Amino acid sequence: MPKGGPIVEKERLEWVDVARGFAIFGIFMVNAPAFNAPFFLYGGGEEYFSSEMSGMIRAIIDIFFQASFYTLFALMFGFGLQMMKDRLVAKGVSYEPVLQRRMFILFLFGIVHAFLIWHGDILLTYSILGMILLLFMKGKNRTLLRSAFGMLAAVTLPFTLLLYAARDFNAAVMNREAIQAAMTSYGEGTLGEIWAQNLTDWWYTNSPGNWPFLIMSMLPMMLFGMYIARKRWLHEPENHRNEMWKWWVVTGVLFLVFKVGPYFFGRPMWFELAQDNIGGSASAVFYVLSITMLYRNSVRRAIRPLRWVGRMSLTNYILQSVVSFIAFYSVGFGFYGEVSPLQSTIFVLIVFLLQVVISRWWLKKYRYGPVEWLWRRGTYKTDI
């Protein structure tokens, strides 16, 4: 009976690993401020860190990072699943049970990560969306695109119009009670109190009412990733140069209009959903196309080290959370609520640079990162 197996070294697309590494960096840049203070969830960051420098850093993160990197990671997730399916089919292996096991193991990783380490976990969400994604595996290319664009439009257009209609009633809300609870639990609490607060914060963003927005915002990017894998843009970029340039220009324009544009008219609250769903999605495609095309010239040398992090993306994602848990929560160094946006950015840069070095060292000795090894062994039910 034929057996499936993980990708081997000669089959790897380096620029795809670089894109994954870049996504891990961007996710960390957004996650770190949410890990070291409650303001991302409950508002009030402008009041606690009101300096011009803090405002500038928040604006940079909002334009170039917020909603751009979890979408990029979702795109790469869909791309990777489609690649796995294609390899399994080529070997005569039934892909459904293999991919279902893969999603189940990711679900288990997500349970541990979401409830014991970081309420902002994406692994649990990706595992559930991944199971939905399997329903599209036999769909035609046009079905993927129509479904993706349809979901983005269905959640973005009507709700943006509703928010615009109610714009006079929209106001930034600062939940002081929730902020104080988080400050006390994470900054001074026991491990049990930290976990209890973590569950509260996880439920705040993952309650049933939020799931339609999560599905219709993230699943489209996974479908775009599947489509790009089927069209083989990233496999054979030289053969799809004109099409990639066209989409690079289109997504670049949408990126500027929806992510930078709002800052020219006061960045109104009613526009935030469109800014994230349209601007964030466009920027994710723009980033991956930029990396792929840059890999064809001298810039390659500057971005190539990111491939080490990308090859161990799951390990590095969880490692970032573990390091942040130790750095910011009371059971570790206890810097929760005391880290400015500038300090948070410096923290991210230092930790990520160390991850590049550690990932390179690890992959010189082993084929996979430790979490990737567990994931692959469970997926293929064999030593690898």
Results as ranks from 00 to 15, higher is better:
Trp211Ser: 11
Gly4Lys: 04
Met83Asp: 09
Asn198Pro: 03
Phe73His: 09
Arg87Glu: 07
Asn239Gln: 15
Met293Asp: 07
Leu214Asp: 07
Val260His: 03
Gly139Leu: 07
Leu99Gln: 06
Val309Arg: 14
Val348Asp: 00
Pro212Tyr: 06
Phe286Pro: 04
Asn297Pro: 07
Tyr263His: 08
Thr205Met: 14
Trp211Cys: 10
Leu234Thr: 05
Ala196Trp: 04
Ser298Met: 11
Arg296Tyr: 04
Tyr126Met: 09
Ser324Cys: 13
Met269Tyr: 06
Asp383Glu: 15
Tyr186Leu: 12
Ile105Phe: 12
Ile60Leu: 13
Ile215Lys: 03
Leu234Gly: 05
Leu88Pro: 02
Phe328Ser: 12
Tyr186Ala: 09
Arg230Pro: 02
Trp211Thr: 12
Phe69His: 13
Ile318Glu: 04
Leu161Gln: 12
Ala90Phe: 01
Arg102Ile: 09
Pro305His: 01
Arg304Asp: 15
Leu13Trp: 09
Pro208Arg: 06
Phe115Ser: 05
Asp86Gln: 14
Lys246Ile: 11
Val309Pro: 12
Ala37Thr: 05
Ala302Asn: 10
Thr292Ser: 15
Lys91Phe: 06
Arg304Tyr: 07
Ala114Gly: 00
Val357Asp: 03
Tyr227His: 09
Glu11His: 08
Tyr70Trp: 11
Ala284Thr: 08
Pro208Gly: 03
Met174Ala: 14
Phe264Trp: 10
Ala166Gln: 14
Gly369His: 04
Glu14Val: 10
Arg20Ile: 03
Arg167Ala: 13
Leu256Asp: 02
Ser340Ile: 02
Ile132Lys: 08
Phe286His: 13
Leu161Arg: 13
Phe22Glu: 01
Trp362Cys: 03
Gly378Ser: 08
Trp202Thr: 05
Tyr126Ile: 02
Ser185Asp: 14
Arg304Thr: 06
Leu214Ser: 12
Ile346Gly: 01
Ser147Leu: 02
Met222Ala: 11
Ser147Arg: 02
Gly192Asp: 11
Ala171Met: 15
Val89Lys: 12
Thr345Cys: 02
Ser298Leu: 12
Asn277Thr: 12
Glu236Pro: 08
Trp118Asp: 03
Asp62Val: 03
Tyr336Phe: 13
Val93Asp: 08
Ala114Gln: 04
Gly55Phe: 02
Thr292Val: 15
Pro305Leu: 01
Asn175Gln: 12
Ile326Asn: 08
Glu11Gly: 06
Trp362Tyr: 07
Ala178Gln: 12
Pro262Gln: 07
Arg230Tyr: 00
Ile228Asn: 04
Gln197Thr: 01
His113Asn: 10
Leu294Tyr: 10
Lys138Pro: 00
Leu135Ala: 15
Ala153Gln: 02
Phe333Lys: 06
Gly78Glu: 00
Arg267Cys: 04
Met222Val: 12
Ile61Tyr: 10
Gly78Ile: 05
Gly130Phe: 02
Val323Ile: 15
Tyr295Ile: 09
Ile194Phe: 11
Leu106Ala: 07
Met244Lys: 03
Ile326Lys: 11
Leu354Lys: 11
Phe65Pro: 06
Val253Gln: 08
Trp202Leu: 07
Lys231Tyr: 01
Ile24Pro: 04
Leu13Glu: 08
Met221Phe: 03
Leu342Phe: 11
Phe258Asn: 01
Thr125Gln: 11
Leu123Asn: 03
